Structures are given as C-alpha cells and as structure tokens.
Computed example of a mutant assay.
Amino acid sequence: MAQFSSNPIRSAVPFLLGLICCTPLAAVAQSLPPLPPVEPTLPTVNNSPNNSAINNSAVLANTVSRDYASSSYLLGPGDRIEVSVYSFPEYTGPMSVLPDGTIILPIVGKVMAAGKTTDQLTQDLTRVLNTILVDPAVSVSLNALRPVVINVAGEVYRPGPLQLQDATDVTGAAAYSPPYISEALVQAGGIRRTADIRQVVVIRELPNGNTVRTNVNLWDALWSATVPEEMLLRDGDLVFVPRLPEGEELVDNRLLATSSLAPDTVRVRVVGEVTRPGEVAVPPNSSLSSAVAIAGGPTDDARLKEVVFIRMDDTTGEVMQEVVDLRNLVDTYQIQDGDVVVVPKTTSGSVLDLAARLINPLNFLLNLFD
C-alpha cells in the first residue's frame, strides 16, 4: 500500500517541478508581468507661446525651464575626468573626453560622456560595466574643465568668439568660478552707447538638441541697491546684446559710461590747433576739454572761444555740429565714440567753414574750381 507524506507542501513540490518542466518557456515568459517603462531624464519641452522667454525674430528656439539650463556642469570634449572602479584597476585612471564626446574603456569601447553630469556618467558606466563585471562600484570625478569659449554678438566693440577661461584644474584648493555675462561683455571691448543692456540674451544649446534663451537685465545691476541675478556662462553659449529701439535712450548715459561694462576708451578725432592732432583714445565719460587735453592741449594760435563739436547720429545718419566755448577748458559735454573736435586758428575766417573743410576735404578741393 502506498504511503503518503503527511506534509501537504512537501507533497506538492514534485508536482510543481513537473509542471514547470513540462511548460514551454514562451508560456512562462508570457505569464510574467511586464517591466515598468523607463522614464526619460530630459525635461519635456513646452512649445507654447507663453513659455517663450523673448520674442526675437533673430533666433527661433524651444524653451525649457531655466532650472534645467542652470543645472550641474555638463561634460564636453576637452574635459579631463577620473574614473574609479573598485577592485578593477584596468578601468581606473584619468581619461579625457574625446572630440566626439566619448571616453574609451577596455572591452567596452566608446561610451558617450558629452552632455552628461558626472553623476549621470557614473550611472551609465555602472550599467555598462555590470554586463561584464560583478557588481562594479563606479565613481567619476572632474580633474580639469575644458576652456570656456563663447560667442558675443550685437552692440559690443569687438564681437566674435571669445575664450573666457583656459582649461581649469579643479583638483587643487582653488574653487572653480564660472564666468558671468558681464565678464564676456568686458572682454568683447565693452558695450556701445546704443546697447540695450536691459534685454541681453543668452542662447544655449542643450544636450537633447533643444535651445534655451534667457533674458538678463544688466541695467538693474548699475543702480539697484540689491544684486540682481546674473547668469553663469557655459562653453558654447551665445551672448547677444540688442540695439536700443529707435529714438530711445537709457536714463543715465554717464552712469553707463563709468560702469565696468563700458569700454576702457573710445576713439575721438581732435584736429586743428592742438599739439598732437589726430585720433586719440579717451575714457568714455570724458568731456570735450578732456579730449583736447589728451591731444596735447591747445596751441598758442587756438581759438578756444569757437571750438566746433561734430557728432553723427547713429540712428538717423545726420551730422550735428555745435560751436562750444572752451576758453576755461571746462564743459559739460560727454564725449562719444566717433566724435570730432575741431580747434580753429585765430586767423581763420568762418569756424564752421574750417570744420567742413577738415571733415570733407574733397568738397573743399572742388570748391576751388568753382
């Protein structure tokens, strides 16, 4: 007579093993619950009109959150990193991000590093090495940052590409300080007097291919008692300084001329009865008398009572000229880039005629044959 076990669980084990062995693997796989979908790490781009930071027809771009654009440092070609895999020295050591944005690991080959933070790269390396190693403990840190190269366009004196910083070693005691917009404008020669620093635009391309545009108001930094937020720049950023709307001027041009955003000097032509006539470089907040002094001062034959001040309007193209009395070498005029100061001689006839001859000598020669 067959004997049965009194333990029902032990009796059911052979039956279950036999059932599993006789069941096809495809049926077993279909019976398993599906894996949850992997959520993307990049933010969703909002293309609604209300989400646009600036309406500027020069560049059309999608807009993402400013918090994402100002997140942790993103790796790129030229960065030097330190990869450490515990107990696996062949995967440990310094590496450089190659021009194609990758790093190279033994057996694994190329792994994309550009556009990722060190934490994101650590997760990617852990996932990749987990296929060939047993429980790899991976860490990634920065050794040196690549140079910060940006482009500055618009109302600055020297637009074009700028290298704001060389490769920066971050392993020492000195803390890394990313460059600000104001530093870029200063290295671009300073802003022109026609610049609208209330609407400075920073255009940045994100790793997902989208572009974020941020509007920065630098005018508040010149007179406000509080320190406004100024955007930190990244390698590859574009800084655009727009022009003031036609007929509009900033409230205080002298404040702008004396600020750190202004150029060190502007070019002014001082001609006539001065010691060193020609183009001179003067500080942007200088007066007419200061420009005359920088040109060596007036000669003994100078008629300071009728000095001619000539300026071309940037918006209309009209030439404006005015007679100024500089006998006391004191005036309230603020010099601007491109101004002309004519110091006539005491024996000259018409002061304005002399100015016209100096500015347009071709017309003077033609008048000789009339």
Score class of each variant (00 low, 15 high):
120 Q>G: 09
238 L>Q: 03
197 I>R: 01
125 L>T: 03
124 D>R: 11
140 V>H: 02
220 D>F: 05
188 A>P: 02
180 Y>S: 13
199 Q>P: 00
225 A>H: 10
193 R>P: 03
208 N>L: 09
157 Y>R: 13
195 A>D: 01
232 L>Q: 10
203 I>Q: 00
148 V>D: 01
151 N>D: 14
166 D>L: 10
196 D>S: 07
202 V>T: 02
145 L>M: 14
179 P>L: 09
139 S>Q: 12
159 P>C: 07
231 M>Y: 03
208 N>V: 05
228 P>T: 06
207 P>N: 10
117 T>Y: 07
103 I>T: 02
118 T>C: 15
158 R>N: 14
129 L>R: 02
112 M>V: 12
229 E>L: 11
236 G>I: 04
157 Y>N: 10
207 P>M: 07
148 V>S: 03
209 G>I: 10
172 G>A: 11
141 S>T: 14
149 V>F: 05
151 N>M: 11
206 L>M: 15
192 R>K: 15
167 A>H: 06
119 D>M: 12
210 N>Q: 15
139 S>W: 08
193 R>G: 04
121 L>Q: 03
162 L>E: 01
156 V>Q: 00
207 P>A: 06
164 L>P: 02
111 V>L: 14
173 A>C: 06
209 G>E: 12
145 L>Q: 07
159 P>H: 04
136 P>A: 05
197 I>T: 02
130 N>E: 12
159 P>I: 02
183 E>A: 13
166 D>C: 03
183 E>C: 04
156 V>E: 01
235 D>E: 10
107 I>F: 15
98 L>Y: 07
112 M>W: 05
167 A>K: 07
129 L>K: 05
170 V>G: 06
130 N>Y: 13
116 K>T: 05
153 A>E: 05
180 Y>G: 05
183 E>S: 15
161 P>R: 09
103 I>R: 01
189 G>V: 05
